[in-house]
Design a binder for these strands. Structure first.
Lengths: 250, 250
DNA sequence: CGTCGCTTTGATAGCCTTCAAGAAATGTGG
DNA sequence: CCACATTTCTTGAAGGCTATCAAAGCGACG
């Protein structure tokens, strides 16, 4: 718990005391990195009062569950979330980890029910945006910005897929770390300190590897002095080596 | 060439003689399956005359190339396309195969330049839609439909990712075939006949496998009577067996 | 201090990759 | 229409990497 809080503070744009802020986007600390940043410039100001008060979640609290009726999306304000899909065969797949500024829950808008469960990995906060308000945004002329938002998501998915196509386990792990470093940098934090509040099991699952294989390779990198010894907050000592191993990203 | 034409006819909603149709969506043979079908019901009729005349492409003709300035998206009317991304290390990745009714080129709207090259695998046709017209669509109140469109794309990506996470080569190939069968069914064709105009190399690349491994397993399935012997048009004799091997999809 | 969950480490086996060669299909020129 | 060159695909054998099974640390918590 105390360790979770530490990790939390490090990645919390709004610090360790969530809840003391209004829902207004102008005051949001993730303003400059939020996926909706383009929208804000144009019309989000008019909708600020319609954004739901920031939702506060503790570790393992669900933002929504698979099958829930869906009438809204979320933007992560602080903390880290994970999305899990259960296949027809009953297997669990960790499809995404969500960091501050990222949009969550859009897939639920296809059928009106969420296709995955999303829950907090640390004490976290998220903004709820009703799809009705999304519609208002478009009508107000934010269409160009919206296209960029979609395109950005898709480009990210593309990189994730390329990373999964890479057969080598080292390349996959390194690729994941590089993508995470980019996200940290975008948030204005040192890209060499990565908050990893998820379990090794979740991480391995997300990368399509076994937990033993992941553990072994991370151990190898630790002994080689490429990364730090911490488990929940990984220090990247030699970013160049990681980038070399992840040579397959665009 | 004659074989390509055969494959072509089989998947061509508009037959083997493209070009004789107006660009109007009301007359498009993919109307009921097009990714924009929701849009049509609401407002696309008003925009029909703005959709560019169907573009006709021959095998290996590029729809667009990586780096090209992008001011439009495309919807496949007939044929099959592939999208290729080149990484910084110079490696090629086949990120997508596009069948009739599917939207292509959205990632280019992030930076205004296309992030991948997309080319025809058979004689094909595609509709060009300027992003300006997309904006008009949103303004006309098609926001709800658009959200569904985005969500649908993302859900598809999710399945593709899950398929790639699966470590077993058999499961990956089977999963790809199942997803392709669903697409064929959506188009109103027999799901057991799959047009595969792409090379084995492209297919293996897309699945994150080596071409030898793919060839070996397909050969095994052929000998077991699970699939037909054809190369460019695969007949699925035992869909149940394939579905069992692809147990990981949702 | 002992239990429980998570992580690390070890040994073996299986699958896929790699390297290599041959077969089939495709394309070209005579 | 055939012969030849080129590309694409199939098949084979050996080796490496990851999965699997198993057990031992390590940390959290009561």
């Amino acid at each position: 718990m105390s360790q979770s809080a530490t990790v939390n503070n490090r990645i919390h744009p709004i610090g360790g005391v969530p809840g003391g802020h209004s829902g207004h986007c102008e005051l949001c600390p993730t303003r400059t990195v939020c996926t909706a940043r383009d929208l804000q410039r144009e019309v989000l100001g008019q909708l600020a009062e319609r954004i739901d008060t920031t939702r506060v979640l503790q570790r393992n609290d669900y933002l929504f569950r698979e099958g829930d009726t869906s009438d809204s999306c979320y933007v992560v304000r602080s903390g880290v979330f994970k999305s899990v899909t259960v296949t027809t065969a009953g297997e669990e797949y960790v499809t995404r980890f969500h960091y501050p500024g990222e949009l969550v829950g859009l897939t639920g808008q296809m059928t009106g029910r969420h296709l995955d469960s999303t829950l907090a990995l640390t004490a976290s906060t998220a903004c709820r945006i009703s799809v009705r308000d999304f519609g208002r945004l478009f009508a107000l002329g934010a269409d160009r910005a919206l296209l960029r938002l979609i395109a950005e998501r898709e480009a990210g998915d593309r990189n994730l897929e390329i990373n999964l196509r890479q057969s080598s386990a080292e390349a996959r792990i390194a690729g994941f770390l590089v993508l995470l470093m980019r996200r940290q940098e975008r948030l204005g934090y040192a890209p060499t300190t990565l908050p990893l509040p998820m379990s090794r099991t979740d991480l391995a699952n997300h990368l399509g590897l076994t937990l033993e294989c992941l553990s072994r390779l991370l151990g190898k990198w630790k002994r080689a002095g490429v990364i730090g010894p911490e488990r929940t907050s990984m220090e990247i000592f030699k970013p160049g080596e990681i980038a070399t191993l992840a040579y397959h990203l665009s």
